[in-house]
Design a binder for these strands. Structure first.
Lengths: 246, 246
DNA sequence: ATTTTCTCTGAGAGTGCGCTCAGCGGGTCC
DNA sequence: GGACCCGCTGAGCGCACTCTCAGAGAAAAT
């Protein structure tokens, strides 16, 4: 069975081979970081820097999903999408777009089952969206139990954006939710503040790791409030999420 | 079977050949010390002094992992990483960086499964990180039972940073943890204070070997407390960690 | 337009950690 | 048997790490 580098079972194609993802962005650094994060999921990744080479790469790779910047040097993302569809009709697309960009055209796209995130985004966000796309499109074999995730009595429904502990609903802000998702996707594993910052916060975030402490403290108040703690500090190393029993 | 110089079985590539590691640092002394420590693990090591020769060396060696200084005379680490990825897509990278430069360009690096350590570091730290990278990347055949290590009834989970003896959880500080890790990776083997100092403490540590005694005494209080001792002093030689039964 | 929520910064307090020092005890050697 | 050396441990100091609180600014909701 294919596994992610973190050891958890990977989302794979129905035949068990790794899912194939194409990243299209003209910013080399960003493309590299994105492909690293997607590769970490156990998937096969290729990158392209413009629309033309994207189509070429797609013909070779026949990707299940494409992460596509709307602003490209040669053509715009929508034209690329049309070409990609002629190569592989059922490909999923995640658009990367500037915050104040043409929301109307994007809105039309998402009706067709595709999705988008606005720059600057966090890697957790992008990876989660791609996972969601592939799952909904039925391209992924569900080795991971679908959109519901469980650690001890803590349950997260990613699609509904709902979190419960011991059946009790917990209300979380967007950042809190994403932080908890990252922790829950890496249970029993010490995560450094830098690691968390790199994954959960936007790639252009300039601030320091102190925010992580702050949000961990917010999460504790909501998740661990009055209960046996699941979030633990490991001094000098980071934080761990663990089920309580032992 | 490939073995380390210490006699314990080495982490090898899936085909049984030694793992290949490339060390890139412009400080010759440091590069030499590092490659020594990595060779000690039974791995095949090459060194390079700048980004350009690193890429050349990578083409020849096709390394499984690269230990890469971020500050290089010619190019910056990120660019080198991209070049290395074009040579070997699935290579793991451990970055070496100055303590206060952490926030600079490192953003996003840990997100892809790669890792970093800040200077000054200890050799145990570097070796452990490289082992972790290779293990997670599935490049290493798991001769050592994964991230869990056992000596007698003493068990260490490196990922969770958890240590138990006879099932009882033992709380350790970072230095205590690293010292115990070194002992557990060399069971039944007398380790001199100097040896321990060189491996567990940072290479720029000015203090004397007396700290080792101190930390051994801390460990005894926590690991051997009220139990049959596993940590033994060999007068004039050093310390040994042994399982109790015989 | 107003209110509410959310995110982040900065300061301050508390605490654990790493290390030095110094004294004690037991083994070793003369 | 006495002196010395090696190793062990308790006390204590400074520092770094972590948590919490309060508030500013921005974004979202009403």
């Amino acid at each position: 069975m294919t596994t992610t580098r973190s050891g958890r079972p990977a989302l794979t194609r129905p035949d068990g081979t790794p899912l194939r993802v194409l990243v299209v962005d003209d910013d080399d650094d960003l493309a590299e970081v994105l492909s690293g994060a997607l590769r970490y999921e156990g998937w096969q990744v290729r990158t392209a820097g413009d629309g033309a080479s994207a189509v070429v790469a797609a013909r070779e790779l026949l990707p299940d999903a494409v992460v596509l910047d709307v602003m490209l040097p040669d053509t715009d993302g929508f034209a690329v999408l049309r070409s990609l569809r002629t190569v592989k009709e059922d490909v999923c697309v995640l658009f990367l777009t500037a915050r104040d960009a043409v929301e109307d055209r994007i809105a039309g796209i998402t009706a067709g089952g595709d999705d988008y995130v606005t720059k600057p985004f966090s890697l957790e966000e992008v990876v989660a969206r791609v996972r969601g796309l592939l799952r909904r499109a039925g391209m992924a074999r569900q080795l991971d139990g679908g959109p519901r995730m469980t650690v001890g009595d803590l349950v997260m429904d990613e699609e509904a954006r709902e979190v419960t502990r011991a059946g009790e609903l917990i209300d979380l802000s967007p950042t809190e939710f994403e932080l908890l998702r990252f922790l829950m996707r890496n249970p029993r594993r010490v995560l450094s503040k830098t690691q968390i910052l790199d994954r959960v916060w936007s790639y252009d975030f300039g601030g320091r790791a102190h925010v992580v402490e702050l949000y961990i403290s917010y999460l504790r108040k909501k998740v661990d409030a009055g209960r046996k703690p699941m979030i633990h500090t490991v001094r000098g190393a980071g934080y761990v999420l663990k089920p309580v029993a032992r």
